[in-house]
Design a protein around this nucleic acid. Structure first.
Lengths: 121, 121
DNA sequence: ACAATATATACCAAACTGGTTATACTATCA
DNA sequence: TGATAGTATAACCAGTTTGGTATATATTGT
C-alpha cells in the first residue's frame, strides 16, 4: 500500500465524532491554532484534542501550517467535497413528492415493526 | 430523554461503516428484504447483517415494512437530508478559487509538519 | 544553555464495534 | 400441532477508539 503523505483514514469515521465535527465547524470561520481549539473544549485535555486533530489530519480534512511555536489548522475541502458527492446520490429521495407522502404516512401510521423497537429494553 | 420510536443513534456513526453505506446504496434502487440484503454480502453472517440493519433503523436511516415473513427495508430521507444540510455549510470552501489555489500550493509544497506524519510509524 | 510555551506521543484502562455461533421469535405451510 | 423459513436477539470475543496522565519534542525568549 502506498501512503503519500500520512496514514489514510476513513473520512466518515473521522466525522463520526461530535467533537471533531465541532472542530470543523470552528474552522469554517478561520484557521486556528491547536491550543485555541483545545481551549474551545474545556472538557477535553490538551493531548485529547491533539489526537482529535491527528484523526482529522489523517482523514485529510484539515491541513496544518506551522508559525513560530504554533500549529495552525485549517479546513481542506477535498474530502468534504467527496462526502458531498456521496450524499448527493440520495438527494432525489427527499425531493420527490412520493417520498414526502411516504414520510407523512409513516408519521401518522407507523409500521407494525416499530412496536418491536419500542418494546426493546 | 424522550425516545419517540426507538433508541436514537447518531447518523454519522451509522454512516461510518462501509457495509452500512453499501446497504443504503442498494436501497436507493428499491426496498429489499433483510435476507436479500444479507445475500448481497456473502462475507457477513445473517445475524451480522441483522445488526447492521438495526443500527440503520436506530439512526432512522431506514424504515421497515413487514410483509408475510419478510421484513422489507427502505430508505428514509429525513436524516440523510440533515447530513446534506450539514455538509452544505462547507460547500463554499471548495467552490472558492482561493481554496483551489491553497489546495494546489498544498500539493506542491507540503507543510513542514507533514514530515512528522510520514516519520510516524 | 536553560526556562517557558505549544504541541505531540506513549501508555494504560474503559468503552465501543463488528463479527461469530447459538438461540429465540414469528409467520406460513402441511 | 409440528416443521420450516425469515429474521432478530443473546452471549461472547478480538480489535479499535477515546480519554486520561505522564512524558517527549520543538520553538522561542533570556
Amino acid at each position: 500500500m502506498l501512503y503519500t503523505r500520512s496514514m489514510a483514514r476513513d473520512v466518515f469515521s473521522a466525522l463520526a465524532d461530535p467533537t471533531r465535527r465541532q472542530v470543523l465547524d470552528l474552522l469554517t470561520r478561520r484557521e486556528r491554532a491547536a491550543g485555541e481549539l483545545g481551549r474551545a473544549f474545556p472538557r477535553i485535555s490538551q493531548p485529547g484534542m491533539s489526537r482529535h486533530l491527528r484523526v482529522l489530519r489523517e482523514a485529510e480534512l484539515v491541513r496544518v501550517r506551522q508559525d513560530r511555536q504554533h500549529r495552525f489548522y485549517s479546513l481542506r475541502s477535498e474530502r468534504l467535497a467527496e462526502v458531498d458527492v456521496w450524499i448527493s446520490k440520495y438527494r432525489g429521495f427527499w425531493e420527490s413528492e412520493l417520498d414526502s407522502l411516504e414520510a407523512y404516512l409513516d408519521s401518522t401510521k407507523p409500521a407494525r415493526s416499530v412496536k418491536r423497537d419500542e418494546k426493546r429494553k
